[in-house]
Amino acid sequence: MMDLRYPIGSFEHSGEITVAQREQWIEDITQLPASARQAVEGLSPEQLSLPYRDGGWMVKQVIHHMADSHMNSMIRFKLALTEDNPTIKPYYEDRWAELSDSRELDIEFSLQILDALHRRWVGLLHTLTDADFAKSFYHPGSQETTRLDYNLGFYSWHGRHHVAHITSLRERLGI
Rank of each mutant, 00 (worst) to 15 (best):
F77W: 14
F77N: 07
K78M: 15
L79P: 03
L79I: 04
L81H: 09
L81A: 09
T82F: 05
D84A: 09
N85H: 11
N85S: 05
P86E: 04
P86F: 10
I88F: 00
I88N: 02
I88E: 03
K89F: 00
P90I: 04
E93H: 10
E93V: 02
D94N: 08
R95K: 13
W96T: 05
W96P: 00
L99N: 05
L99Y: 04
L99F: 00
S100I: 03
D101S: 07
S102R: 07
S102I: 03
R103D: 04
R103V: 13
L105A: 12
D106T: 11
D106M: 06
I107K: 06
I107A: 01
E108Y: 00
S110T: 01
S110Q: 05
L111C: 03
Q112G: 05
I113G: 02
A116G: 13
L117H: 08
L117S: 05
R120M: 06
W121T: 11
W121H: 14
V122R: 13
V122P: 08
G123L: 06
L124E: 15
L124R: 09
L125R: 11
L125K: 06
H126I: 07
H126P: 03
H126D: 12
T127M: 13
L128Y: 03
T129A: 12
T129R: 12
F133W: 15
F133Q: 07
F133M: 13
